[in-house]
């Protein structure tokens, strides 16, 4: 009974975790991301939905990805529940965004979230005000080491608009992949706009 039960439990988990499908994002075309956000990537990317967020990648998310965090509200999380480490009850234990956080606290939330996902030696730098889709926002760079011992590098940009947090996070291996798509990411970020009324 126990073994059969365990088999079903594992099968259920595999079913729940195994459904990851990618769709193509066509380069050169304006794309609505939802919540009034749109971008125009200069080249094709692969896109998948990760919880409430969209993740784009060229070579696989472990090598590089762009994460679009589209207006999370009080209690929401920067990284999706599916990708996170979970607590004993199976609930998501990543720290939550809270209404009233300021930009520096968003930076702290980001660092704590990365740490909860197993990142080591996280260093943020160049945290500064920056325009984000034509709005007042922020930008910083970060580095960390994965649990598997891989050095990663990234750029986070975002804004707080009406108690909602918007972010675009670019993340890639320090060796090769970060540099290779950084220019592409900068063009995507520069193309980002909020629709009327946002």
């Amino acid at each position: 009974m126990m073994k059969r039960c365990l088999g079903m439990f594992l099968a259920a988990n595999l079913l729940l975790t195994g459904c990851v499908g990618y769709t193509l994002v066509k380069g050169g075309q304006k794309l609505e991301l939802g919540q009034g956000l749109s971008v125009k990537p200069p080249r094709d990317w692969n896109r998948r939905t990760d919880g409430k967020h969209k993740v784009w990648t060229l070579d696989g998310p472990r090598l590089q990805y762009i994460l679009f965090v589209k207006g999370i509200e009080d209690g929401g999380r920067i990284f999706s529940a599916k990708a996170s480490r979970r607590g004993a009850s199976g609930k998501d234990t990543l720290p939550k965004f809270r209404k009233g956080m300021n930009l520096l606290e968003v930076g702290e939330l980001f660092v704590a979230s990365l740490a909860r996902r197993g990142a080591q030696k996280i260093i943020t730098a160049g945290f500064a005000p920056a325009e984000f889709g034509g709005k007042d926002g922020f930008r910083f760079t970060f580095t960390y080491r994965t649990m598997a011992g891989l050095n990663m590098r990234g750029i986070a940009a975002g804004a707080l608009l009406g108690d909602k947090l918007f972010m675009v996070i670019y993340n890639g291996t320090e060796e090769f992949f970060f540099d290779r798509s950084k220019g592409d990411f900068e063009k995507i970020l520069a193309s980002l706009t909020f629709g009327p009324g946002s």
Binding site: N13, R85, R86, A88, S89, G90, G118, T146, M147, A148
Partner: peptide, 13 residues
């Protein structure tokens, strides 16, 4: 505490 791909709750079980 080294990474696991799956669900930690399942592994704990």
């Amino acid at each position: 505490g080294v990474p696991v791909v799956g669900d930690i709750a399942m592994l704990a079980t």
